[in-house]
């Protein structure tokens, strides 16, 4: 499912980013590589999403969160 559909408090792992190589690279540089564990700090609000990964917090714009595919790990 897309990251945009997750709820606050969800724990997910990153599966894929469906975007061109430039933006993909940007996200990978920020630590969003396949298999990384992501904790959703604030989601489900029709706006941007706050996530916590690799020890720091990131805000991902709504548009971006829709193209990041994740899988729930409970």
């Amino acid at each position: 499912m897309p990251l945009a559909m997750t709820k606050s408090g969800d724990n997910v792992v990153l599966k894929d980013i469906s975007w061109g190589h430039r933006l993909k690279k940007r996200l990978q540089d920020m630590g969003l590589t396949p298999g990384v564990e992501i904790k959703v700090v604030s989601g489900n609000n029709r706006g941007a999403v706050i996530v916590s990964l690799r020890g720091s917090k990131l805000v991902l714009g709504r548009g971006m969160a829709q193209k990041i595919l994740v899988e729930s790990i409970g």
Binding site: L58, V59, G61
Partner: peptide, 10 residues
């Protein structure tokens, strides 16, 4: 066009 993607560290 749509709003552009963004990512920022908090």
């Amino acid at each position: 066009g749509e709003s552009s993607p963004f990512i920022i560290e908090l």
